[in-house]
Computed example of a mutant assay.
Amino acid sequence: MNSLRRMLDILNLFRPEQPVIDVDTICSQLGYAQASAYRYVRELSSAGLLVRMPRGYALGPKVIELDRHMTEYAPLITCSRDLVDALVAHTGMHALISELYSSTVINILQKQGTETEPLNFGRGRPMALFRSATAKVILAYLLPRQLKRVYETNAAEPDLQRLGATWRDFSKAMLAIRKQGYCVSVGELDPGKTGLAAPIFDEKSRILGAITLVGSNERFGAFNQAFLVKQVTDAAAVITERIAMEQPAG
């Protein structure tokens, strides 16, 4: 299992500024021996997760195949799509479904609202862990031991410090969000935009992700906030129920 994790960690090296990697990159950035790096590259290439290029390796065609499958059949997406469409239709704002994996929050579904200015953090782009209504509402529902681990790993991060300079302050801030049942943030990821997020849970009531409504401060302010909160929290509750029942929308 450790060997598999080490091999898959190679995929984390791909970034906008680093679309192609080679064995030297793997060895220098992950600290792997050359023999291990070559073996992992062969196995990833055989699985279609990497493809050989003139300057090294790029992500392979299997990734886009999996992305298409996820877009069409992933339960969190199929259980959410009609509700996301309805939120956009009722408010004109952008609507997002985001999921938690490891210590990363990433948007897996995005529906464009009537506002033309794009979001800085659209589908497929990891979000800052301690900024945005989306990330904070997910953090708030982690198990205490998970939240403590996140805090200890990131205690020096300025964004975390703004939520609480000590573990006690940070955990109190998360508890306040949890008691409220939703989170609102203003301008934390996109200047001039407000986000409202509510948690989505799996069949065992563990935090799975969030549904978020994002719009310009002016558009957001034109609505009664209680109305928006009900729209988003009701949608989150329906998605959670569908996940538990394994009944995607038609």
Rank of each mutant, 00 (worst) to 15 (best):
R52E: 14
C27T: 14
A236V: 15
A35M: 02
R206C: 08
L228G: 04
H69C: 08
P54R: 12
F121T: 08
M53F: 01
T166G: 07
A47M: 10
L87Q: 09
P54F: 11
L76F: 07
T71Y: 12
A244M: 07
F227T: 14
L96H: 15
F14M: 03
L119M: 08
R145C: 02
D169E: 15
T166Y: 06
Q110F: 12
Y151T: 08
C27D: 02
T134L: 03
F223Y: 15
D67G: 00
R52P: 00
S171F: 00
P75V: 01
R131M: 12
D24T: 14
T194S: 06
C79Q: 10
C27S: 09
A165I: 06
D234P: 02
A156E: 10
P54S: 05
A210W: 05
S46Y: 13
G221E: 04
S103G: 13
Y38H: 11
L142R: 12
K136Q: 15
R149E: 15
A222S: 15
E218S: 06
G92P: 08
L96C: 12
F227V: 14
V41K: 02
L189E: 08
S3R: 13
H94Q: 06
L76Q: 08
P118C: 10
M1F: 07
E72P: 04
A155I: 03
A47N: 03
A128C: 09
A58C: 05
M53R: 15
S45L: 00
V150L: 08
S132H: 01
A236R: 11
Y57P: 01
D85F: 12
T114G: 06
L175Q: 14
I207G: 03
R123H: 05
A35C: 00
G92V: 13
G60A: 06
P144N: 09
D159L: 04
V232W: 10
Q18F: 01
A33T: 07
A74M: 12
V150E: 12
V88T: 13
Y40L: 04
G48V: 09
V23F: 01
T116R: 14
A210E: 02
R39L: 14
S216M: 03
T71G: 10
T78R: 14
E117V: 15
F220Y: 15
L100H: 05
F227E: 13
I10F: 01
M93Y: 04
A176H: 07
R131A: 12
K136F: 07
G181L: 11
L139V: 09
R42C: 02
W167I: 07
A95T: 10
R52K: 15
F227A: 11
D24M: 06
L208E: 06
I26K: 02
V232R: 11
W167Q: 10
I77L: 13
A249I: 15
L143N: 00
T166D: 11
S132P: 07
S98Y: 06
R123S: 03
A133N: 03
R5L: 07
L213R: 00
T71K: 15
L160F: 01
